[in-house]
Amino acid sequence: MISPDYARMMARYNAWQNQWMFAAANGLSEEERRADRGAFFGSIHATLAHLFWGDTLWVARFDGGPGPDPLPDVALSQLDWATLYDWPTMMAERPKLDARLASWAWSTEQGDFEGDLSWYSKALQRDMTKPRAVCVMQLFNHQTHHRGQVHAMLTAFGVRTHDTDIPFMPDEVPEWH
């Protein structure tokens, strides 16, 4: 279904998209980043915080490393994602998380996408078991979905955005600035 090459390409794509998106969002004021723009999580800040938390959770499931701090004991629909991370923390930690995702992707072999992965889902309040390949696709699809929301919010602020098409990804993703 998927391969190490897929994971590696999508890890590069993730880093490429996060680089320009975080730089663009960093050009906004704190108030603009936290403004409710009608997206699922409300604001740019909250959406990127949700994505940061989710990426940390998924990569921990794949690489066995540390996961995110536990969420507060409230219904996920009541959680204020923007309170989980302040902006300077996300700006400093996102490149490290992207490097961790890339490191995991480059360490995979075909067998890493076989078999099942089991975990407890707080969202569904039950144990889950799904094929590993489906879980890896979920990681990358989830990133793309929420970055699309941020892209729309940035555009609504009049921010010049970048390409999001995979064929236009540069051969080498430049370093974060």
Rank of each mutant, 00 (worst) to 15 (best):
residue 10 M to N: 12
residue 21 M to Q: 15
residue 53 W to F: 13
residue 44 I to K: 05
residue 41 F to T: 08
residue 25 A to R: 02
residue 16 W to M: 10
residue 52 F to V: 03
residue 17 Q to P: 02
residue 20 W to P: 15
residue 24 A to M: 09
residue 53 W to V: 12
residue 14 N to C: 04
residue 25 A to F: 01
residue 13 Y to E: 12
residue 27 G to D: 04
residue 23 A to W: 05
residue 52 F to I: 02
residue 19 Q to D: 15
residue 64 G to I: 07
residue 11 A to H: 13
residue 14 N to S: 14
residue 13 Y to D: 07
residue 21 M to I: 12
residue 22 F to Y: 15
residue 43 S to E: 11
residue 16 W to V: 05
residue 57 L to R: 06
residue 52 F to T: 13
residue 21 M to S: 13
residue 40 F to E: 11
residue 47 T to W: 05
residue 53 W to Q: 14
residue 33 R to D: 00
residue 33 R to K: 04
residue 45 H to R: 05
residue 51 L to P: 12
residue 61 R to L: 12
residue 16 W to N: 12
residue 39 A to H: 05
residue 61 R to N: 06
residue 37 R to C: 01
residue 19 Q to H: 14
residue 54 G to C: 11
residue 46 A to C: 11
residue 28 L to H: 11
residue 26 N to W: 00
residue 44 I to G: 03
residue 51 L to D: 09
residue 31 E to N: 01
residue 41 F to C: 08
residue 27 G to Q: 01
residue 30 E to A: 13
residue 27 G to K: 07
residue 31 E to Y: 00
residue 24 A to I: 09
residue 46 A to P: 08
residue 29 S to G: 00
residue 50 H to Q: 01
residue 47 T to K: 13
residue 52 F to W: 02
residue 49 A to M: 06
residue 38 G to R: 04
residue 31 E to R: 00
residue 52 F to G: 05
residue 37 R to K: 03
residue 49 A to F: 03
residue 39 A to P: 03
residue 52 F to H: 10
residue 60 A to R: 09
residue 28 L to N: 07
residue 30 E to H: 00
residue 33 R to W: 00
residue 60 A to M: 11
residue 63 D to F: 07
residue 27 G to L: 04
residue 26 N to D: 12
residue 50 H to F: 05
residue 41 F to I: 02
residue 14 N to D: 14
residue 18 N to Y: 10
residue 42 G to L: 11
residue 21 M to G: 15
residue 14 N to I: 02
residue 42 G to H: 08
residue 61 R to V: 06
residue 16 W to E: 08
residue 13 Y to A: 11
residue 35 A to R: 07
residue 16 W to K: 01
residue 36 D to Y: 05
residue 33 R to P: 01
residue 36 D to K: 09
residue 64 G to Q: 01
residue 32 E to F: 01
residue 63 D to M: 09
residue 49 A to I: 02
residue 51 L to T: 15
residue 33 R to T: 07
residue 24 A to K: 13
residue 57 L to F: 00
residue 21 M to W: 06
residue 45 H to G: 05
residue 56 T to K: 08
residue 58 W to E: 12
residue 58 W to R: 03
residue 54 G to F: 11
residue 51 L to N: 12
residue 62 F to M: 07
residue 53 W to Y: 02
residue 15 A to K: 10
residue 38 G to N: 01
residue 38 G to Y: 00
residue 50 H to K: 07
residue 60 A to C: 05
residue 25 A to S: 10
residue 31 E to A: 04
residue 63 D to E: 09
residue 59 V to G: 02
residue 22 F to M: 13
residue 13 Y to I: 12
residue 57 L to A: 04
residue 47 T to M: 10
residue 15 A to T: 06
residue 14 N to K: 08
residue 27 G to R: 07
residue 10 M to Q: 15
residue 11 A to D: 10
residue 47 T to V: 04
residue 57 L to S: 03
residue 39 A to L: 08
residue 58 W to I: 06
residue 48 L to C: 14
residue 53 W to M: 04
residue 39 A to Y: 03
residue 20 W to G: 15
residue 55 D to L: 10
residue 28 L to T: 13
residue 36 D to P: 09
residue 25 A to Y: 05
residue 23 A to N: 14
residue 26 N to R: 07
residue 57 L to Q: 01
residue 41 F to E: 09
